[in-house]
Amino acid sequence: MSVDFLVAMVGLGALYALLTIGVALLFGILGLMNFAYGEIIMAAAFAMYLFQHSPWPVAVAMALVFAVVVALLSERLAFFRLRDADPVTLMIASFAVSLAVQSVARMTVLPRAQGVSPKSFLTRHLDLLGASVSVRELLTLALCGGALAAVALLLGRTGLGIQLRAAAENFQMAKCLGVRANLVIPCAFVVVGVLAAISSIVLVWRQGSVSADMGLQPMLIGVVGAVVGGMSNLRGAALGGFLLGAATTLLETVLPANLIAFRDSFLFTTVILVLIVRPQGLLSGAKVRVS
């Protein structure tokens, strides 16, 4: 296997893992299968488009701000009021949020898809171990890998991370111990906003365009990865997303050209099968003792 292929595969895997974590985090904490996640990504991409002629740190900063604001607003206006609702109601509500954010985008700047001219440094190639690797792929890998490491650190090492995980597992008990729900849940949405912004930056770099419905594909990837990896287990979800990305890269080189168009059918049939055979996810090692 050549180095550039390996970088591309691991990079896409990391990107998909990031998308999956964004979906799985809120599912774990609130039981919310968030179909509006794609719109948070779209909001960040929207900022990238608006500020494409500013220096890139400004564009990146604005992408972060837009995504976090949309994430927090969706919590405040919709999900906050549905905290005790069952997961299906939440899922329908997230559909509504998704449509609302999309319509706002359509009403303002994005009735049609818009191009975002790629930064010149992205199209360059570097010589790495004798192979020519595109800077874009390398940056994808670096950014997504970095974000994943940061999430792992945040959740694993910090007080906030422990509280988030505790709230994810047993919300009631966490509240009894003094974990402040009204602080922890918005924090989770902020984390999701940041993750969405990072994935969005990478996505815009890769596809060079922005549109109101661009969030659909990444959101579906996040959902599939989370279902396959085990929805209430973040490590499993990340691994599920990673394998999905790696498998996609592999499929695209291995599958005959006339079957590539049916990739989504393969993926979602897998989802259905996983739900039937192993509803707790393929990769979640359910080794928890009950009594």
Binding site: S103, V104, M107
Partner: peptide, 18 residues
């Protein structure tokens, strides 16, 4: 602006859900 109808429909749905 186009999209307003969808936005209001989404808002109605959210209010009913809540």
């Amino acid at each position: 602006p186009a999209g307003l109808a969808d936005l209001l429909l989404a808002a109605v749905l959210l209010i009913v859900l809540i």
